[in-house]
Design a binder for these strands. Sequence first.
DNA 1: TTGTATGCGTTATCAT
DNA 2: ATGATAACGCATACAA
Lengths: 331, 331
Amino acid sequence: MGITIKDIANAAGVSFSTVSKALNDSPLVKPETKSKILKTAKELGYEPNFAAQRLVSKQSKTIGLVWPTVERAALSTLVTKINEEIEKHGYSMILSINPAASAVEMFRRFQVDGIIVFEENNNRLKVDFSPDLPVISYGAAHNQTVPVIDVNYKKAMYQAVHYLYELGHTNISYVGDFSPIDQRQIEKYKGFLEAMEQFNLDVNERSLINSGGLDWYDGYMATKRLLNSGFIPSAIVGGSYDISSGIIRAVREENLIIPKDISIIGYDNIPQMANLETPLTSVGVPVDELAKSIVHSLLKQMAEPNSLPLLQTLQPELKERASCAGTSHKS
Amino acid sequence: MGITIKDIANAAGVSFSTVSKALNDSPLVKPETKSKILKTAKELGYEPNFAAQRLVSKQSKTIGLVWPTVERAALSTLVTKINEEIEKHGYSMILSINPAASAVEMFRRFQVDGIIVFEENNNRLKVDFSPDLPVISYGAAHNQTVPVIDVNYKKAMYQAVHYLYELGHTNISYVGDFSPIDQRQIEKYKGFLEAMEQFNLDVNERSLINSGGLDWYDGYMATKRLLNSGFIPSAIVGGSYDISSGIIRAVREENLIIPKDISIIGYDNIPQMANLETPLTSVGVPVDELAKSIVHSLLKQMAEPNSLPLLQTLQPELKERASCAGTSHKS
DNA sequence: TTGTATGCGTTATCAT
DNA sequence: ATGATAACGCATACAA
């Protein structure tokens, strides 16, 4: 039971509707009364009742983010960036770590003005959105009804392989998660394959290493297996930030020098890549750009519904750091 | 502009207050009318307006969780568990990754029924809580006004050292973050020191290794330094899950066998510890218990304000897995 | 058992 | 420039 505008009205000796106007900085109220009202409001420690405001205004000025899996480094930074971007536009962000369906339902009740969904694996939202609630999804393209922000994973892999090829590498391995249910991973996998083909590079079982997971030790273990198979590629492409950090670890454990003995390039484009033991050259959409793109798209969708294309594909960039070098010998 | 109870009332040919009662499963309404109302409600796709419900009931049935730093494995699982526990009690959870002060302010506006704050480093909430909003904090004890759930870190370290001591270890090192601003880490550090003292074990600069951070490669690098200093302890205590996984990596890299050559015990008690390359014996409050305790305490505080002690300290447990063994030689 | 009336705190549309 | 009043969608005390 906090202070209401009526309390302020009493204290200031005006009507509550005048108080409302003053609080909303309406030009219809005399500056003197306005400042007096503001003053007593502060004195009384007034806090607007959000529920009431929403009930009448039908706006919550907040955006919900659905994030079913809370445990991945690259996504964590993306969430942080998205939050910053949202606040920059005068909105608040709330998170739910529930499955898409129930998270969305809850956000509806909270009357969020818009929703961002991180789609993961099979956590697709089959929910039929009432068309009035702007939703945008971040995830690989797939036939559905809400606009999705996608990343051109194939191009990313092309860039990675191309870059290595230009440096003279021909024995290139890919260490990543080949899970058949994660569309993002599938795209990377296929992208690598296509790129290798385009450059006429040999692909065999030792150039395709399934980490079977996205954690750093998945990448670590997979790389161990690769290196212990007796075949040492001259370059490795890592499927994600976490996986790549595992690759680096495994490679160093074999006393191979990066990038002298072996080059590493990883997917993802977050600042942390520079902080790894060996600053990692990487491909991917810069996380700031990703965040901006997601937020701006949603805002646009909120401003004018159905103004968004069903699919926006962001282009990756290559960022050179210190983990790749040329080969002297073309093997 | 969704369907309201008035729409249902019209469609069902009753008054809207009867609809309200029916929807709330009031015994005051005849079963037949009730089912009829429920049916037409479903037909029309009725969704209750949360803002209105809250405006009148002054309850949101949701709990806010403040989590300023989204990037730590052990905390991720804790958040997930807390979420489950909250839902189990008929509440929803929303997350904010903003600094405590602004997150709390936002939750207030959302009229959450209670707030859980993860305190980290210096991210203390100096906010003066209006006494009407139940808050509970998870973090090391410190003089403040809201009840906090603490963990007996000293006892945890005692258990760890005691366990190793019983196994015959005398050369024990601690690898952890010595940051002077993180109360939790300080407690662990001091706890280790005290335990060593109690068992009359020698403490020198090689038994206290500052990882300077909480990420896995912080633990990795610190352990590397330790092992390369020429001194190999017979056991290492890790300050956290992430750090410990880095320790394991570094130890294996030196071709030391766990636990034959060296024993490792880590702080934290989450299921993932069993999934590390070497299943890690650990001390800490089991994450389920922690989650339960946090949620139940908050719920209790919500039910009867000020019924909670300002400090509750949870006791850690030792969980044996496969990373510790006895020493044959008492050095 | 059902319906009527009132209020929750705010904004917005009228008058004044 | 200010105030009275309605409306937002719902719950509930009270009347029928």
